[in-house]
Amino acid sequence: MRHEKAMQLLADYAVGRLKGRAKIALEQHISECPICERELKALQQTEKLLRGVGLVRPSDPKLMLTRIRSATTQTARVSSRVWQWRTFWSYLWKPAIGFALLALVVAATLSIWRQPPDHPDLSVSYEQYHRLVSWSNPLGNWFEAGLSVPNTQP
């Protein structure tokens, strides 16, 4: 093992977090390298002193757990609904985007394929050709505007 690599692994080794082959290789390197041996000794002293103070306990962990339980129960109904929607969309967003893109492609294809025919008879106006009521006088032709029923009696 190279010295630089060994120096990187010493911190984990000192707190007992190095396992397997890396640990064996480092131990072999330490036995041959006085610099690493000295560094490891300093690290282990610090680790021993700091670890000696131990972890800290909250004043009443049981009460804390009860509060956590009650807080999570209160929000459970709302969050489960949100969660369900989130889960629903997490599975469906890809198909939904795919479907939307497909619909766009189909619409574009149809619009190109079914182009309206060119104006066949230039002697009649566009409005007349399409049987539309003139925009300038929408009530000019009551029949066309749908406001009058033609008299079909003979």
Partner: peptide, 26 residues
């Protein structure tokens, strides 16, 4: 020890707590 840790700057303090007190790897 706790006073010494408290005197460290916050970035140094958090790595010391996580690595030495909680025993997490680098």
């Amino acid at each position: 020890v706790h006073e010494a840790i408290a005197q460290l700057s916050p970035p140094l303090r958090e790595v010391v707590v996580l690595h030495y007190l909680e025993g997490l790897s680098v």
